[in-house]
Design a protein around this nucleic acid. Structure first.
Lengths: 333, 333
DNA sequence: ATGAAAGCGCTAACAC
DNA sequence: GTGTTAGCGCTTTCAT
């Protein structure tokens, strides 16, 4: 910058202002500076600016995993608004581990990012690491997977209702023993879906409420054996609502392997944005979350919190509806 | 930091060194400093460090899109090594647009990142933006989609061979008019796959080499109509090798819609890491790239370039093999 | 083993 | 409309 200033016989302050299109600089000088900068291949050093301005123009995106269509689509939504706002996105993966999440969030302090978008891991049962960040006045928005009971902004879908609808749908299609497949007992999103599911059973006087929710924990290998046990054991369910994409994939693989026929012996519904749902064998009934929109809304909320100082994000709550798309996997034969 | 120094009656220099576990500081003082830092919730300001040390501990990851299983898995591989090395990952999406790619790479200069991992967009036909970055001595590694003819490190798969094998596979399964579905005429990866494909046709004296490669450009809507035209027109192919996941999805959707029977009327092979391939209707034959490993290898190469100064990345070349997994979609009935 | 001081590249307050 | 200057929070010689 010094060089540039010398080259043009102006001060560094002038260059600085011109580079950022300040209105205190004449159009003429601006043009001169910008041209010279382009010629010399000069751009502002972002970290020097960050240090001085005390803002990083960067947000953190914390995901449990990325090999799930929902999160891929959400990244698109988030990225699109970040880009428009001139912000950069740091991506972090917790791999569903609480300890990873803790260390990721600790990296977010000290001004590394101006805000955090997070979908919590299935293991997370304590929120101290999140609250710590909030105490540093870093805006935080939960999307999809929130930590319940906190005064933190969140963008979610109508989980209870969808769980309810899924159960009703299965019952109406002849299931007498439907089961909800969860991945966590602490994840609000799973619990709400499960609650809705159970509420429907109760209302319809159907199924076995005591055993209606099955939690698959651990690695995907564990998941497989747990599901296999469930589907081949006695009192095996004739309907499944899978809380996440991965579980439905496992159910399908197993049905192909064991010869359990979908939908004849087992009907399946899944919470997922899977694009291949209509071309699966059989086509899979999904409850599709508006993933892109959830990401977008969460990012927009976050930027409101970042840009409008004094704006209190804490109680913001956005709920975007998911839709159940009926396909062969849950149809009454 | 000043506060911390005052609190402990040491100098800021001592604190700085202690925080980074320098050997010129006694164990005793280190412990004292670290404890006080933990107590006061103090962490180093990353941007001040970056400014001073002239390194950001951050890399950029530039992807054409994220809604493709290959890239999702690659992110995992990249993230895993970045994390281990204590680096942060900025994620950028070009959405297959050349101009986006140009502006993304321009953001990467001025020390924002210490290195760049990129898979180029299907539109990219000029490499000036990439070379500009290289001239700034920023280490760059291509993964999967390289720009051909540049002296830049790259990690790819055996594309020619796989294109060749795919064609042989279709011919052996009875196809007389197989076609390769490409997304770009400039993408090296597509061209190599197409070249391999054509080489096989030539060798086997099969098909119509002149019309063996069909390029689907533009938005996904355009793609749909182009493919529909191809598959319902005259001289329609009896075999398809799709160069990317998305195209195979489109072919499947269309076959379900138009009643074209796979594999009876049309056999399909796709370059993809799709997890749902075995449970599609019919199960889809894939050429599966080692996506995680490609990401990992690319990141490891990049860090070699970043950490070993004077190390010349330019001519590094890693090729990891893909495997063809035969499933129903290409089987001879 | 510890400290003093210069300065990384930039911005903001203030002077002109 | 432009210039001067102090300093953001840290690291790094170089003294001691």
């Amino acid at each position: 910058m010094k060089e540039l200033a010398k080259e043009l016989n102006v001060s560094v302050a002038t260059v600085s202002k011109a580079m950022r299109d300040s209105h205190e600089i004449s159009e003429q000088t601006k043009k001169k500076v910008l041209e010279a900068a382009a010629r010399l291949n000069y751009t502002l050093n972002p970290y020097a600016s960050s240090l001085r301005k005390r803002q990083s123009k960067t947000i953190a995106l914390v995901l449990p995993e990325v090999a799930d269509n929902f999160f891929s689509l959400a990244i698109n939504g988030i990225q699109s608004v970040a880009e428009r706002k001139g912000y950069h996105v740091l991506i972090y993966l917790s791999h569903e581990k609480f300890l990873n999440e803790v260390s990721i969030l600790s990296e977010c302090s000290s001004g590394r990012v101006d805000g955090v978008l997070i979908s919590i891991s299935s293991e997370t049962t304590s929120a101290e690491h999140i609250l710590k960040l909030q105490r540093e006045n870093i805006p935080i928005v939960f999307f999809d997977r929130e930590f319940e009971g906190l005064r933190i902004a969140r963008v979610v879908t109508n989980d209870f209702e969808c769980g309810y609808n899924a159960a009703i749908h299965l019952i109406n299609n002849g299931c007498t023993n439907p089961v909800f497949l969860s991945i966590s007992t602490s994840l609000g999103i799973c619990n709400k879906r499960a609650e809705g599911f159970k509420a429907a059973l109760l209302e319809m006087k159907a199924g076995d409420i005591e055993n209606a929710v099955v939690v698959c924990k651990g690695t995907s290998g564990d998941e497989y054996s747990q599901i296999k046990k469930l589907l081949t054991g006695k009192n095996r369910p004739d309907g499944i609502v899978a809380s996440v994409e991965r579980l439905a994939m496992t159910v399908y693989l197993m049905s192909h392997e064991t010869g359990i026929s979908i939908p004849n012996q087992l009907k399946v519904v899944v919470f997922s944005t899977l694009e291949t749902a209509p071309i699966l064998n059989p086509p899979l009934t999904t409850i599709t979350q508006p993933a892109f929109e959830i990401g977008k809304a969460a990012a927009e909320l976050l930027f409101k919190g970042i840009e409008k100082k004094g704006y209190n994000l804490a109680d913001e709550y956005v709920e975007l509806p998911s839709v159940l798309t009926e396909r062969m996997s849950s149809r009454n034969s």
